[in-house]
Write a protein that binds this DNA or RNA. Structure first.
Lengths: 205, 205
DNA sequence: TGTACATCAGTGAACGCGCGTTCACTGATGTAC
DNA sequence: TGTACATCAGTGAACGCGCGTTCACTGATGTAC
């Protein structure tokens, strides 16, 4: 028998899943209504307020989960790079795209709200991405050290890479498997250009 | 005395300006209502239908104007590069940011709807940007020829550059003058990395 | 263990609101002769 | 130029709808003794 607290958590989960399940290429968080989410979760509209003060509060809880997914993704990519020893760029792109597929609507939310209409959302998503950029920059510096191939402006390199990855990610979400492969190939080439460019600029200095 | 046709054009213009004027960092096209736009333009809600079948039709007309602005921007940048002879990257970034400031809400619309929730909008904006990318790729190839510094994958270079420029542009729209200068500097460095990376890869082949 | 009371997640009725859209209309502008 | 008719941009009343939010409530779960 579930305790009251457990049951409450279940309902909260149902609300968040209901909201996520409504997102799609043609449906942003901003177009959801509280009544719609409650209906989808199987509770009365008024019960919504037992869990969140307003719909945006639920959205921000989802962004937090998106942040967790990003950190998992980064750990996974590191592990694979260390284990497989292949191209770090290729492995990272493959890992990213795999996560994208497995958490489509969570990423959809992050990708949209990053440049969306609500300031709290933009701020929250940017904080998650900033954290991601910082970790990537650290990795880039570490790898550059190990390979004795110095980098110019590692932080900028990381920012540009993340921008490209996220933009292509947004495209990939609604692409066919075939298009997705093309996007991956393009993305890898673009990332390599940035990396090589940064290395070349470092040499010239 | 204005003819009937002239007056109709004026009202249409007022409707489009009214919609544009409502856009901001916290207000996307999707949150506008037909009644609100009509009110702002000074006509009855029902008169709106004399000009557009629905609100989205007005939005797509604005995207067309955004495309015109993009093409002007590109012509202007080319002219300045030819005249001033300085860094093409620097001149282009300066020109872009100037246009951004002068057509803030038009660019806001383009930047948002590029990844927005409405398929017709996404398609229209992507067509404009695709045209922009194609022209940029042509320019890059031409300059590479003139300087005898071959480029690898000019089209990809152009795509990556446009992605970075548009993303930083979205940031710049609501930044202070000081932040905007920093964004410009970062953007120039990032574009240079891509260019140099592409040149280095071309040499290695 | 049993009893009395407190807590609180979930409810259903009700509210006022702004929305998109329809309709029959008005009256100034345009046109044919 | 004057007259009779056609066009059509703009109107105001009215509609039904889904929305967020409030309120007093119910009844199962939890707690103190």
């Amino acid at each position: 028998m579930a305790t009251r607290a457990e049951q409450k958590l279940k309902t909260r989960r149902a609300l968040m899943d209901a909201a996520l399940s409504q997102l799609s290429a043609d449906r942003g968080f901003g177009s959801l209504s509280l009544r719609e989410v409650a209906r989808e979760a199987g509770i009365a509209p008024t019960s919504f307020y037992r869990h969140f003060a307003e719909l945006d509060e639920l959205g921000l809880a989802l962004v937090d989960e998106g942040g967790v997914a990003l950190r998992q993704l980064m750990r996974q990519a590191r592990k694979r790079i260390a284990r497989d020893g292949g191209s770090a760029i290729s492995t990272s792109v493959e890992t990213f795209m795999e996560y994208l597929g497995n958490n489509a609507n969570l990423f959809r939310l992050m990708l949209r709200e990053r440049t969306g209409v609500s300031k709290p959302f933009r701020t929250a998503v940017k904080a998650e991405i900033d954290h991601f950029v910082t970790e990537l920059a650290d990795d880039l510096r570490r790898i550059a050290d190990e390979q004795s191939r110095p980098l110019s402006e590692a932080r900028l390199v990381a920012e540009a890479m993340v921008t490209l990855v996220f933009n292509q990610g947004a495209e990939a979400l609604d692409a066919t498997a075939r298009e997705r492969e093309e996007l991956k190939a393009k993305l890898k080439t673009e990332l390599r250009m940035i990396l090589v460019g940064s290395q070349t600029l470092a040499k010239r200095q």
